[in-house]
Design a protein around this nucleic acid. Sequence first.
DNA 1: GGAATCACTGGGCAATCTGCTCAGCCGAAT
DNA 2: ATTCGGCTGAGCAGATTGCCCAGTGATTCC
Lengths: 159, 159
Amino acid sequence: MGIDRLDGRIITLLAREPRIGVLEMSRRLGVARGTVQARLDRLQSNGVIRGFGPQVDPAALGYPVTAFATLQIRQGQGADVRAHLATVPEVLELHTTTGTGDMLCRLVARSNADLQRVIDRVVGFDGIVRASTAIVMENPVPLRIIPLVEQAALGDRGD
Amino acid sequence: MGIDRLDGRIITLLAREPRIGVLEMSRRLGVARGTVQARLDRLQSNGVIRGFGPQVDPAALGYPVTAFATLQIRQGQGADVRAHLATVPEVLELHTTTGTGDMLCRLVARSNADLQRVIDRVVGFDGIVRASTAIVMENPVPLRIIPLVEQAALGDRGD
DNA sequence: GGAATCACTGGGCAATCTGCTCAGCCGAAT
DNA sequence: ATTCGGCTGAGCAGATTGCCCAGTGATTCC
């Protein structure tokens, strides 16, 4: 478990130029093609690289508003609430957490007004006691992984 | 702006089998290769599809703990705090929000104990007044986009 | 010490896909 | 009626992929 320098370079290169192909990668990295191929296979079966799915921008789809909602759940209703939220397309992500709330979910909507509809749909469910929503204004650091990959690649053993 | 049925099918197919290739896609969708190619080009220049970067699992990298931190910032220090957080590899994402806190960030750590180190590093900065952290236990709905794409593809005009 | 294991190299092969182009067709808008 | 944009089906040269092999160096194990 863990990745080395070469793995890190492969991931970083792939993140910067996703359409690059194994052959070109091997040229850039100065290693044999088979090596890159083997590393990639290993990274994928390791689960380090989950896949190469398209990264879709909800804003370009017509959902420019993002919000995070903290939910409080009635005891024992967790499973029902999870199932309910899974059916709402505007719920992009759901976590159960420690702390103030019981769940945290990421929502998108077509507008601030539309967000009301989404929230109503989300909380219009019996097991949800209370919801508190924070609308996202800016996104100074979009979801990223490269800095972490680079740190992990430096053999940054913290075990 | 917006996508049609075919765009939706292309994205969904691509999400399910990212390595599929334009030719195979055209076969599965029953349209000409040029059409798929043109649609893909358009989706990418539209910004609907941002890219095909590798999806890396922080857990497989040795960072199995995820947390969300709500930060309160001292007035006028926003820019400095943003810059500071951008330098922390364990900060995967950062948003500025309305509501209780001023910012919300997603963190990862090697362990619950290690999370303390990460939080110390995050909040060990002058402009941050207060931080409240929620540790993620489960992730019933991992970051997803397909349900939204399908809804958008159905010509679900909400303008 | 000696043998086995593992990762990497460098090469080769057939099959496939890509990027690009072209002409024809069709519906919609002007 | 004409133009425009999108789709089809086809073709081509060039590049890439998946797969195979043998040789090498390092590390581990008996």
